[in-house]
Write a protein that binds this DNA or RNA. Structure first.
Lengths: 197, 197
DNA sequence: AGAATAGAGAACATTAAGAGAACTTTCAAG
DNA sequence: CTTGAAAGTTCTCTTAATGTTCTCTATTCT
């Protein structure tokens, strides 16, 4: 169980290594977390070593290395934001992503997307999308819709002024389709997506 | 049987831990449930301990732990494949996806992408990408690269025949960039992405 | 009225954070 | 190879923050 300062220290080390490729000096850590004493930093680092997050080559300059902490599955260190042309920018407050907690919600299911119909919204062939089971949706939401009780499709929803339902693919090569409301049954609404390379 | 305030306290602790991965301080609980007195919070927490909902490491900061099963979370029913114009097609071998085990691998970290430079590969502004720490990559892989030891960027990698390194954005509006090999340090390789709507 | 619940806040004990001195080791410039 | 500055290590001391234990007051419900 890390203390606040220890966690802050670990986070700084991770971001530093991601940005520089080598470990920080104690002095740099001190400045990074906003204190002055190298001795104090050393104490925090030692705690991280004891807790298994970090390895230390004793005495060597920049001798810290990150260790794979084999704790709970699905916890991934979150470093911050990456924008082209800048170093990775740390975000205080959040230092880990919990995959189980990332998609929280009631009544969800997952499907694998086949085809390119939503490619312009960044949903590619093979992606897995997380859907929240619902039978209604607002304009603009992306839904899993069942058409004529036989075809399922993932499209953006629009209720037209004429009382019809339009299902809009995110792909210039495809045309939106118009349906009578009773033809279309909404099965759920898109709440997330994930992809593995 | 918990009182209203005790339930409120328990709920706050659950949400806090789910969001942060560690327990709140009494002061934070107090603010969270809208009161001022740490002493009162302590009384509620003690009641939760007595009722078996929570464990406490005496005296330690952030020493609370939930006694609930947290391991089962993160399973989402997997219905199969959805292709426009067909029913959802069940895949017999798999009926659940396990979020904690979705990204398995050594030395991973996550960053939030800022900007549209990879938009044509389905990585949008705000997406979170999972990176596996490595210092080498093959042609075609998407990497976090450190340029001149100061800029970090997410681009597709290509080693040219001339021995140079090309970093290619997935965005027609942006140009690939050529670098000397010693200018570019590879920090990791893209292995996954996730997005929440 | 009496009991249960809620809240404030003082007082105290302990933990955690931080400064900085003193010492040892590493490392790079001569 | 030598040497001195810089880095890592080990301390002691101080302070700030947090958890713990009280007492007191108010409110609600039976």
């Amino acid at each position: 169980m890390l203390t606040d300062s220890q966690r802050k220290t670990l986070n700084f080390i991770r971001v530093y290594i991601a940005n520089n490729g080598y470990a920080p000096k104690l002095q740099e850590i001190a400045e990074g977390i906003g204190i002055r004493s190298r001795g104090v930093v050393h104490r925090y680092v030692q705690a991280l070593v004891d807790a298994g997050y970090v390895e230390n080559t004793l005495g060597k300059h920049r001798g810290l290395r990150l260790r794979e902490k084999t704790g709970l599955a699905g916890q991934i260190p979150f470093l911050g934001r990456i924008a082209a042309g800048k170093p990775i920018e740390a975000i205080p407050e959040q230092d880990e992503i919990s995959l189980p907690n990332f998609f929280t919600g009631e009544q969800q299911f997952a499907v694998r997307v086949v085809g390119d119909s939503m490619i312009e919204m960044g949903i590619l062939d093979g992606d897995i999308v997380i859907i929240e089971s619902r039978d209604t949706a607002k304009n603009g939401e992306v839904v899993v819709a069942l058409i004529d009780n036989e075809e399922a499709t993932l499209k953006q929803l629009e209720h037209t002024n004429e009382g019809l339902v339009r299902l809009i693919p995110a792909n210039q090569k495809m045309e939106p389709m118009l349906y009578q409301p009773e033809q279309v049954r909404i099965q759920g609404v898109l709440v997330g997506s994930l992809r593995r390379y």
